[in-house]
Simulated scan of single mutants.
Amino acid sequence: MTFTLATWNINSVRLRAPLVCKLLSEEGPDVLCLQECKSPVDKIPTEEFAALGYTHMIARGQKGYNGVAILSKLPIEDIGAHDFAGLGHARHIAGRLENGVTIHNFYVPAGGDVADRAVNDKFGQKLDYLTDMRDWAKDGGLSKSILVGDLNIAPREDDVWSHKQLLKVVSHTPIEVAHLSDAMEAGDWHDVTRADIPEGQLYSWWSYRAKDWDAADKGRRLDHVWATGDIAASAHSSRVLRAARGWQQPSDHAPVFATFDL
């Protein structure tokens, strides 16, 4: 079985439903994982997606913020969600495909503006969330699993436009990168995107603050596709759909794709 998966922080699934439909109709991934849906589950425009062949959806939602969803052409079973760090946020959903592959869709907290938990509770929550992800992975005996989502960390030097200038900026600080690395190691997770695209600058997010995001190109790779070691070698054809960042009323994130032969 070969299937293509995409992950996208949509920054409001209701506001940007036309963009979701554009992606589904033009790119046709078998599975699309969305983050920051900002909608209760019953308000997600599922009819529009079903009309394009995405008749299966599992989701967790909240009004106005957070929220994760998995849209699928393939049957997918809702196998639950975990409240990492006990925040009470809709930031995780897990589904299992008929071939036994489990997909974990994550929206890790952004962490606020100051990289110091002593003065910024949001940064502390982010670190606690990542620690809980590590412990969950260590205890979970994960196998035949894919983890995707907006992890809100750009771990490598070439995952940001300037490693030196961003070392103290939330999303690229050494403590965040270390926490993410610990979670990855605990679950035997492998970075599918960088396995396919090992060299060079690679981004999936560009700030709304830039007058011309494309020309400035001050991006960060915040959106990730991982797979457990037992299936990581089956992944290929990774790419970032940079063009989506330039669509009308876009999300500040671009979709990230990978294909799996399982």
Rank of each mutant, 00 (worst) to 15 (best):
V114S: 02
V101D: 02
Y65H: 13
P155K: 00
K138G: 13
V160Q: 01
L34M: 11
C37D: 06
G64A: 05
V148N: 02
I197Q: 13
S12W: 04
L167K: 08
V108H: 01
I44H: 04
K122V: 00
N105P: 11
N66M: 02
N120D: 06
V108T: 10
F3E: 01
G86P: 07
V169L: 03
D230Q: 12
P255I: 09
D191I: 07
E77M: 07
S162K: 09
P174N: 08
R239P: 01
R60D: 09
M57S: 09
Y54G: 09
P155T: 02
G67E: 07
A137M: 06
Y54W: 10
G53I: 10
H56E: 12
A115N: 01
K73E: 13
D42I: 10
V119K: 01
D159H: 03
A118D: 13
G140L: 10
E176D: 09
A195P: 00
A195Q: 14
P109C: 02
T173G: 08
K63A: 12
R91N: 07
H236K: 14
S238K: 08
N105S: 08
P174G: 06
H253E: 04
A59L: 10
L52M: 10
D132S: 10
D116Q: 06
D261Y: 05
R194D: 08
L23R: 12
P109R: 03
N9S: 08
V31G: 04
H104E: 07
V41R: 07
W206Q: 00
A6H: 12
A233S: 15
L202W: 01
N120G: 07
R220Y: 11
V256Q: 07
V192N: 03
L127E: 10
D261C: 05
D113N: 15
P45M: 11
K73F: 10
L151I: 12
Q201C: 01
G28T: 12
R117W: 03
M184W: 06
L127P: 12
K63H: 11
F49C: 11
C33T: 11
W189L: 15
R16A: 05
I93R: 12
K144Y: 00
V225M: 10
L97V: 09
I76C: 06
N66K: 03
T131N: 01
S251M: 00
H179Y: 13
I76N: 07
V101C: 04
E176M: 04
Q62I: 08
Y208P: 00
E98G: 05
R220W: 15
